[in-house]
């Protein structure tokens, strides 16, 4: 080799160093821009929602029992929308958490690897179906079906929307739960089986408790999916804000309200425009609180495990 190593001061080498630095800065800017998105979300929500509270007092906002901001005689009781959201979320979770957990235990501890390889992607297709399709399914398939069992079920109701939402969330819960369970070291499983415990005892007394932090985050993900789900409830649960927890009646969630108002004409600064940002802020607050609880549980369990 005639040239040997290139001279550190050569133009070619300098140019290469500049290029490397340039690429690194571009990549950094891309990564940093994701922080801008969060900032953008929080900033717009607050900026558009805060003027609302110049017109409406907090007391009215929290304790009014009706939500009719677009009527002649407007009422702004956010709790009506919150109760709808909590009701549908609760119904969805009573489906998704037990079924998701059982499915995860089955896939991780009971069935063979080959079966799992086939069933898991198929189960995940449930999460791939567009939510508007689930809305159609809830309104035009599940509701008529349920009406045969419960005759006084309204044609728009929280029950079928919640149930369909629950099935939709199963793969989110089961996937993460199963990952967490499979991450439990094999020696724990083998130790338990060697002591003569059955598969069932091993699963629920050894594996599930050791994988608890992962399972908790799976549940939290499920909860935030259910809180933020929009199309299923907008199509199948009706658009009637109601301060009640009766699953057989129609109801309206925070998300469905945003959709309902967005479908009309929405000039910036109008009361309708402000209220959807208020509803959005409350929704974001709920999701953040649940995410924080999830993180808290995880870090506490991890500390204990050490």
């Amino acid at each position: 080799m005639k040239e040997g190593f290139s001279d550190p001061k050569s133009f070619k080498r300098r140019a290469r160093e500049v290029k490397e630095l340039l690429i690194k800065s571009i990549l950094f800017c891309c990564a940093a821009s994701s922080v801008l998105i969060t900032f953008g979300v929080v900033w717009t929500l607050l900026k558009e929602a805060l003027p609302f509270f110049q017109e409406v007092s907090f007391g009215q906002f929290l304790f009014d029992t009706e939500w009719t901001p677009l009527f002649e005689d407007p009422k702004y009781g956010i709790m009506t929308l919150v109760s709808g959201t909590l009701l549908t979320t609760f119904i969805a979770l009573t489906v998704a958490i037990p079924l998701g957990t059982i499915t995860a235990v089955f896939l991780s501890e009971y069935c063979s690897a080959n079966v799992r390889e086939i069933l898991k992607p198929v189960l995940e297709l449930l999460a791939a179906v567009p939510t508007v399709v689930y809305g159609y399914f809830a309104l035009l398939f599940v509701t008529p079906l349920l009406q045969k069992i419960i005759p006084d079920l309204a044609s728009f109701n929280a029950l079928s929307a919640g149930l369909v939402m629950g099935v939709m969330i199963i793969p989110y819960v089961s996937s993460l739960t199963e990952d967490a369970m499979r991450a439990v070291p094999v020696y724990l499983r083998e130790g338990s089986l060697a002591l003569g415990a059955s598969n069932f005892q091993t699963s629920f007394k050894v594996i599930v408790p050791s994988a608890f932090s992962g399972i908790a985050s799976a549940y939290v993900l499920g909860i935030s999916r259910a809180l933020g789900e929009t199309m299923v409830v907008a199509i199948a649960a009706g658009l009637q804000p109601r301060l009640s927890f009766n699953p057989l009646e129609s109801t309206e969630t925070l998300t469905a309200y945003i959709v309902q108002v967005s479908m009309g004409d929405l000039p910036q600064g109008s009361i309708g425009y402000k209220t959807i940002y208020v509803a959005g802020s409350v929704l974001l607050l709920f999701t953040l609180v649940f995410n924080l609880i999830g993180q808290r549980i995880r870090s506490r369990v991890e500390k204990k495990a050490k």
Binding site: S34, S224, L227, S262, Y277
Partner: peptide
């Protein structure tokens, strides 16, 4: 660390809030 936590949070916020942000920022 901030960027990482932020991306986790972004994945968790409801899709409709992206729509609200877009209405405020892109549309208006």
């Amino acid at each position: 660390k901030i960027i990482e936590i932020n991306i986790l949070n972004l994945a968790g916020i409801p899709s409709i809030t992206y729509g609200l942000m877009a209405l405020g920022i892109f549309v208006y």
